[in-house]
């Protein structure tokens, strides 16, 4: 039992030692440590908040870009479609115009041909008449009266003219 009772000097030394340690920790060691712990907690909190903000901003930008991209695609499709329409209209117009021109050229050509043909016919008729008279003269050796000539020619011409009517 005697061994259990503590030495008074041990009680005093341990209390004083504790007091010294308490003052050293309380006044010198703990304030900077607590400050650092708080600062770090604050810093981590800030960093997390900032990261969250950045994430939200990045997401917003992505959405914006996606939207813009979609718009641009729509716009380009629209432009292409418009271009196609214009090209088609132009094609139709060109084709129509070409057809028209061809038609008018054909018509003119036909008219010209008809004109030429008529002129040629008239010339032919005149020459045929003269030629006929000359041939007749040669064959008959006599000269027909003016009236004979005339009736003969007219008869001949009528015959030739009927060729023209075809």
């Amino acid at each position: 039992m005697e061994a259990i009772i503590p030495y008074t000097s041990e009680l005093l030394v341990s209390l004083v030692s504790f007091g010294v340690l308490f003052i050293a920790l309380w006044k010198f060691a703990l304030p900077p440590i607590m400050k650092m712990l708080d600062e770090r907690a604050e810093k981590i909190k800030d960093s997390l908040e900032k990261a969250e903000e950045t994430r939200v901003e990045a997401e917003r930008l992505l959405d914006e870009y996606k939207e813009q991209l979609a718009e641009a695609r729509q716009e380009s499709n629209r432009v292409i479609e418009q271009g196609r329409k214009i090209a088609e209209t132009m094609k139709d117009e060109i084709v129509a115009k070409a057809n028209e021109e061809r038609e008018s050229m054909l018509a003119r050509a036909r008219e010209e041909i008809q004109g030429e043909k008529r002129t040629a016919m008239a010339e032919l008729q005149a020459q045929v008449a003269d030629l006929s008279v000359a041939v007749a003269n040669r064959l008959i050796g006599t000269t027909l009266s003016a009236n004979d000539h005339k009736s003969l020619i007219e008869k001949f011409v009528a015959e030739v003219g009927s060729l023209d009517a075809e």
Partner: peptide
Amino acid sequence: GKTSLILTNYMVFLIIAIALTIVFFVVASR
């Protein structure tokens, strides 16, 4: 006796441990 003014062996170790604690924390906090 129990009340005599002495420094026991345990008190030497106690003082060493407390001194080490103080040195450790004061150095660490700097």
